[in-house]
Design a protein around this nucleic acid. Structure first.
Lengths: 366, 366
DNA sequence: TTTCCAAATGAGACCGGTCTCTTGATGCCT
DNA sequence: AGGCATCAAGAGACCGGTCTCATTTGGAAA
């Protein structure tokens, strides 16, 4: 026979042991690569394994060893290129250490997030990487620790949770962005984000349940206040959770009595929608509207004008999170570490200098 | 005690049975939701389970049932928004049926693909969805069947493999694109793709190992030939596997003695790079260079000019693949099905009418 | 009250590995 | 030659569930 005889039923160590004439224990030692075995026995077992087309059952292995060689990842939306890059980073780093990745989408919904975590823990992943949708409800995140699995928070830290985290310096980044706009003479600057509150209206930074967004808004507000801009909070716009919602929100925003002369978008999906709306409404960019966005998505370099962005090391964040998790898996316990990666403000051409600094909208102020 | 007493060691059915004073079998019936149990026993077990904070071990469950409730997905590159959408579709459809998704990246490398499939099979996923990097080496794909797991091919069918597949009608789509360009007067039309051959040079469609790409090129060549364009194969450019490679390749292409007046990009990553190069080189679009790309990536609508694209129902393809797989998992065996989803040619503004139809490049022909 | 059938329960094998413990064989030292 | 350490190999428990099969229980029919 030329081919290794494809059995219809999967062969087990016991089958291999039987065929090779050794005990199950010895066959297992060879196949599992542990313990000490004589060359003679090894050869016999390997031959039989080949003959039977033996393939190990990782499930059974995981059950006794207690480790599955798998890490669970829960992100908001894998379609968002931000998470696409992050997952790629996680996946590459995981594979480099021999781990697999189980992916779950939360759709930024806490209930879905909880369900995903529950099944991942039940499936005995060795550890989890989560981008939590909110930092107000953390019971399901604490449960991960109770189940004895390490957790690394990605992109969004939660102060109340004593676990590892990998984030970008959102606050500092948003301060820099806001400062840039202020320096260019902008005083009506809107911040548009997907983050949601019960009322869809911004009142207080404490209403913002996504850590990274909250920090950005804090930076935004502070720099605005320093620049003496009155009523800065009114420029924070929530609820850009879908392209459609973003679209409506942006149209409303731009049609207000006092429209903003600049917008900061909280992610590239939002920026894209703003870009579309501005074009539809015939608003010249950057002359009539400046735009800066978080996330240096590939397309931002190619529009007219190319858009100024906050470049986060997204791939690296993912990779770092995976490495951190795997390290904790094999190392001795230590205090939670919080890795904050620097961002880079990449200036392109979507921010204009605003000549007239009076408060009103452009046309009226003439 | 207010809280459900978080035990340091995970509780098992045996523990719950002991505490509730019933047999392990009965506790398992309640906890596993099968068989018949009296209300009294059920209550007792549930109470004990709550008390001990019992969480089922899916691993153990999978081992006896033989099904893991997990489907394995192997894609080329999760960072590519094409796969991002597809994975989202898979993930949503899977979750709707109670399945989880294990994701693996192949990086379009057959060896990595093989390794990924091997571990996924070892982990006893119930079935797999794969976008095979090549259709010439299929041993590892056949092995999936030998292991008794169903396989669904995504985006790239393989004739030699009798398994389900979900694809877009690539050939028809590329014919339509090429026809559009020909009708607009283009005769120097390049096709740029990531697909690779040993020599990096196109010779024969048989050299193209990615099914979807081959079909597109076949359509491209045929329409070109019908239009009487000589030496059409010379316009096929391979090796756009990375942004950098695409960049160099495109620069070379546009600097040739007879540069193309139109380029068809095989995916949105390539199109983006071409866009950048054209801009750098000061080539006006669409006047001096027309561009069409496969994949209606979000950004294509927002550039200047917005780019004409082949819209594939990517999310739907992913969802369909998952549904097909899950169906096969629960249904009786039947012949392989090949679902071919229609595409839509979305005309935007990146294709110009070419006035002068002579063969030489624009400037020379004046 | 007796009979019969179905529901409820318990005992224990089983899935496919790992791992401990024990025994047997071999080699080295004094 | 006897004693001891080391290596190889086997027997069998174990992980945490499911599931078969036998037995007990309870209510309805006779």
């Amino acid at each position: 026979m030329k081919e290794p005889q494809p059995k219809n039923i999967a062969a087990t160590v016991a089958d291999v042991a039987r065929l090779s004439g050794v005990s199950k224990a010895t066959a297992a030692r060879v196949l599992g690569g542990y313990g000490t075995v004589s060359d003679k026995a090894r050869d016999a077992v390997m031959l039989a394994a080949q003959e039977l087309d033996y393939r190990p059952n990782e499930l059974a292995r995981s059950m006794t060893t207690g480790r599955s060689g798998t890490i669970g990842v829960v992100v908001g939306d894998i379609e968002n290129p931000f998470f696409g890059s992050a997952v790629r980073g996680i996946s590459d780093a995981a594979r480099a250490s021999g781990f697999n990745v189980v992916l779950a989408n939360s759709g930024e919904d806490v209930a879905a997030e909880r369900a995903a975590i529950e099944t991942l823990v039940a499936k005995r992943v060795d550890g989890l990487i989560v981008s939590p949708a909110q930092d107000s409800t953390i019971g399901h995140l604490e449960d991960i620790g109770h189940a004895g699995r390490p957790l690394v928070l990605l992109d969004r830290a939660i102060a109340a949770l004593a676990v590892d985290s990998v984030t970008a310096d959102d606050r500092q980044a948003c301060e820099a962005v806001t400062r840039l706009l202020v320096e260019r003479g902008h005083r009506e600057i809107a911040y548009v984000t997907a983050c949601d509150t019960p009322t869809h209206l911004y009142r207080d930074t404490r209403d913002i349940l996504t850590a990274s967004v909250r920090e950005r808004i804090e930076g935004f507000l502070e720099v605005g206040a320093q620049a003496g801009i009155a009523d800065m909070p009114r420029w924070v716009r929530l609820g850009a959770n879908t392209p459609d919602a973003t679209r409506r929100l942006t149209i409303d925003l731009l049609r207000e009595a006092t429209p903003p002369s600049a917008i900061i978008a909280s992610d590239s999906l939002i920026a894209l929608e703003i870009f579309k709306v501005a074009r539809e409404l015939g608003i010249e960019m950057p002359e009539a509207l400046s735009l800066v966005t978080f996330h240096d998505a590939a397309w931002t370099a190619v529009t007219t004008p190319p858009v100024t962005v906050v470049r986060q090391p997204v791939y690296e964040m993912g990779a770092a999170a995976a490495k951190m998790l795997i390290e904790r898996l094999s190392g001795e316990p230590c205090a939670p570490r919080h890795l904050v990666l620097p961002t880079l403000l990449v200036e392109r051409s979507s921010v204009a200098v605003r000549e007239n600094q009076s408060a009103g909208p452009r046309i009226r102020s003439l």
